[in-house]
């Protein structure tokens, strides 16, 4: 997707406006919707990965230490991971803080 929707001309569209680049919506940042963000106390993390399973965005990945962490580019701050974490690793804090 070289051009944004505002730059595309009618000639740029594929037949029937078909999109041929699978998953290109991943370029869209949803992180700025957030009013609260995740903070972590990884000393409690048992690396179970439940937070990753339950994330509606699918934006939680394992970091180099094997701990699970939300990608702030996408994380909308719903707080499901914090609520579901069995060892309470995650605390939601307001973005302003």
């Amino acid at each position: 997707m070289a051009k944004s929707e505002g730059e595309l001309t009618w000639r740029d569209l594929e037949i029937g406006a078909i999109v041929t680049e699978p998953g290109n919506a991943a370029q869209y940042k949803t992180g700025d919707w957030r009013s609260q963000r995740t903070t972590y106390d990884f000393t409690k993390c048992i690396k179970c990965g439940l937070c990753q399973i339950y994330c509606p965005e699918g934006c939680i990945q394992q970091n180099d230490d094997g701990h699970f962490e939300a990608n702030v580019f996408y994380c909308k701050g719903c707080g499901i991971c914090a609520r579901e974490c069995p060892t309470r690793v995650i605390t939601m804090v307001l973005e302003e803080e």
Partner: peptide, 21 residues
């Protein structure tokens, strides 16, 4: 083999382009 997405929705900024095409 070659996944495509058919039938996107078009916001006002691109609907006219699709129709003109």
């Amino acid at each position: 083999d070659k996944p495509v997405t058919m039938g996107d929705f078009a916001p006002p900024i691109i609907y006219s382009e699709a129709k003109w095409a």
